[in-house]
Design a protein around this nucleic acid. Structure first.
Lengths: 196, 196
DNA sequence: TCCTTTTCGTAACAAGCGTTACCGTAGCAC
DNA sequence: GTGCTACGGTAACGCTTGTTACGAAAAGGA
């Protein structure tokens, strides 16, 4: 059994390359050769680590979800109160820190791809439902007296606002700077946290 | 000078075909042959009406902007008061009527394409600024006492909410039905129209 | 009616795509 | 050191893409 490789590391390396290419060249620029070049290898290795381009895409999509989930977990765990947790989770979902604008671009790319690919669409919905459930749970912790309907409406409105800010900032960063996003989010949260 | 054609009608026909293909096959499915087939002609006519694929894409993008602008104009003109106008304009920007869900899909497609194409990005920003200016003007008519900063924040928050609802509904219509979007919009508008 | 000129379908082109087959090579077992 | 085996780079495949060249058909002017 000579020459064993670290398959997991390879897959992560390649998924990161998918990510970078998608962020800077968009969906049309996402080719196997571009990914290979970015990862510093050839298409041979790419298609030995993944059987097909779609498998590579799906794995990169899963990686995106895992990263955001991990970040949200960390933000939630570090928060002292439910309202702090809600603020922190939504804050790291938007790119307030300006540390992951490229993630928004990647997200938009995957979203557009999901509109024509059922597998990607399913993963998008799963990830979104997961995020909705998280936000809903945090809001419920802040406002235990709210009805399910009100919880639902507020959750989805808040998530839509965050995604809208992300999308618009990805395409027009000047019009949607971090400070504005922060203010918009703070105001929306204020209405939830402090008044009935 | 025999056999003259209606260039304008051809261009609109082809742009609509671009639109339909983009809505149902997504950005990767948008090929000249697919557009030609949808328009009931061949690639010959397509590339006689437009010099290149990019020109076709840009014209289709312009058409998308024109349609939304015309619809917004009509909604605004039909409204009795500034607050009604604001409600109507935002209502037709979201796809409350369920009449143009495909427009949201097309919008997402162009958005993703804009992230990798400067010309499309510029048009996206121009269209968005135009929409922002419209919403801002209507809000200012409702709340003439507000400061510029407050106007700006409220406008961009409201537009982000609408775009977020559109994007999320495009990818997951079940989770974001028309009624929910209507409720979310109504609540956000209520905070603007009725309280200082 | 015939001729001219524009229109547009046909068919080919080069380039780039995802994918596959192949083979040199690098590393462990002995 | 030698042999074996999985790894991964090379290069080709077939296909589709955007684009172009060419020719047939169609319609107004004489």
């Amino acid at each position: 059994m000579p020459r064993q490789r670290d398959v997991g590391a390879q897959r992560e390396l390649l998924s990161n390359a998918v990510w970078q290419v998608l962020a800077e060249a968009g969906l049309p620029g996402l080719t196997l050769r571009a990914v290979a070049e970015r990862a510093g290898c050839t298409t041979g290795l790419v298609l030995h680590a993944f059987p097909t381009k779609k498998a590579l895409l799906l794995h990169a999509r899963d990686l995106l979800y895992e990263r955001t989930a991990i970040r949200a977990d960390a933000a939630e765990a570090a928060a002292a109160s439910p309202s702090d947790a809600l603020t922190a989770v939504l804050g790291c979902a938007a790119d307030l820190t300006q540390g992951h604008q490229e993630e928004s671009r990647v997200w938009v790319g995957f979203l557009a791809a999901a509109l024509a690919d059922d597998d990607l669409a399913e993963r998008h919905r799963a990830a979104n439902h997961s995020f909705l459930a998280r936000v809903r749970r945090l809001i419920a912790a802040c406002r235990p007296e709210w009805t399910d309907d009100r919880l639902d409406l507020t959750t989805k409105t808040l998530v839509a606002l965050v995604e809208g800010l992300n999308v618009l900032a990805a395409a027009d960063p000047q019009a949607y700077p971090a400070r504005l996003q922060e203010n918009a989010l703070a105001k929306a949260l204020h209405d939830i946290v402090s008044e009935g």
